[in-house]
């Protein structure tokens, strides 16, 4: 008649804003990740405008941080994550992806700031004389002899940042989150498609003449590839969930996952991108990017809320 199987585990009931958090963090990290990778290893190809991805990251990270704090029941105590007042020491717990994630965020913010300065210099904006040294350092880090090392490190932290919330939910007891190790992968792929889509949108809207067309199309190409990978990953994820797949495929969640994420958020944009003439090139770029963003948002909703509401 009744059993206690379900009550032996509890949903953390993370508040809804965690979806925004994941979504925004994903975009910030995805945009940054692709930007540094391309800047470092993109070869001699035209990379015009790619640095503008940094604006996105820099703009979104404070929002991310704020949402992170808003998520807490005791918001004013967020600093406890970094400083252990009782013991008077820095707070870091290597066993806790959340604790580690907080530090990853801190480091990532440094990278993002350097990137931001670099972007400003490239675009010739806000060049204060007193900060000349900072700008120069940012340029040096991006173009100097150690650029590849710096940018690679940035990529690692961007990736880590994109995925730490995945590792976080994997390090738990909700079977749907722990049955597979693939949630970080989902987050990474989705971060890239959403992040790059936002970069594309930014470039489309800031494109004076056609100077950035090349970059936009190259980025679009990335999106297409990662969309395919993302679809594949979602299918692998659901299959790997086994008995727990119903946590993300039951009722509304199933409809959102297959129709919203895979259909409207991935397959439709992919098809549109393959037939750009159907709706016109510019409109296709904008529309498909928006769809990808919506899909990315829903994906997070399904994977987070589905299992949580199951308990």
């Amino acid at each position: 008649m009744y059993n206690y199987e379900l009550t032996q585990l509890k949903s953390p009931d993370f508040p809804f804003i965690i979806i925004f958090d994941l979504f925004i963090g994903g975009i910030a990290a995805g945009a940054f990740l692709v930007a540094v990778l391309l800047l470092a290893f993109g070869g001699k190809i035209n990379k015009a405008g790619l640095h503008r991805a940094y604006y996105i990251t820099m703009a979104l990270l404070p929002v991310y941080g704020l949402l992170l704090i808003l998520k807490l029941e005791q918001k004013e105590r967020f600093v406890n994550v970094m400083w252990q007042a009782r013991e008077g020491s820095l707070m870091i717990n290597f066993q806790s992806p959340m604790s580690l994630g907080a530090w990853v965020l801190n480091v990532f913010i440094v990278f993002a700031a350097v990137g931001f300065l670099y972007a400003l210099r490239k675009d010739g904006m806000l060049q204060f004389a007193w900060a000349e040294k900072l700008y120069k350092s940012a340029v040096w880090l991006h173009e100097g002899p150690a650029a590849k090392v710096f940018l690679s490190l940035g990529a690692v932290f961007a990736g880590w940042f994109a995925m730490y919330l995945g590792v976080l939910v994997t390090t738990s007891h909700l079977p749907a989150w722990t049955a597979t190790p693939f949630i970080p992968t989902l987050w990474a792929f989705s971060a890239v498609v959403t992040g790059v889509s936002v970069v594309i949108l930014l470039l489309v809207f800031t494109n004076r003449g056609s100077k950035l067309d090349d970059s936009i199309h190259r980025l679009d190409n990335i999106v297409k590839s990662v969309i395919v990978a993302n679809i594949a990953m979602i299918i692998v994820f659901v299959l790997a969930l086994g008995q727990w797949s119903e946590t993300v495929t039951r009722g509304m969640y199933g409809a959102l996952l297959w129709g919203g994420v895979v259909g409207a958020g991935l397959i439709v944009p992919l098809l549109l991108k393959m037939k750009p003439k159907l709706l016109g090139q510019k409109f296709t770029l904008i529309f498909s990017s928006v769809l990808v963003l919506v899909g990315g948002f829903i994906l997070r909703y399904v994977v987070m809320m589905g299992p949580m509401s199951y308990w």
Binding site: K10, S11, P12, D13, F14, K71, L72, E73, Q74, K75, R77, F78, N80, V81, S96, M98, L168, V169, S172, H173, L174, W177
Partner: peptide, 8 residues
Amino acid sequence: IGCKYCIT
């Protein structure tokens, strides 16, 4: 801080 992580 009420992050709820311990719940999981």
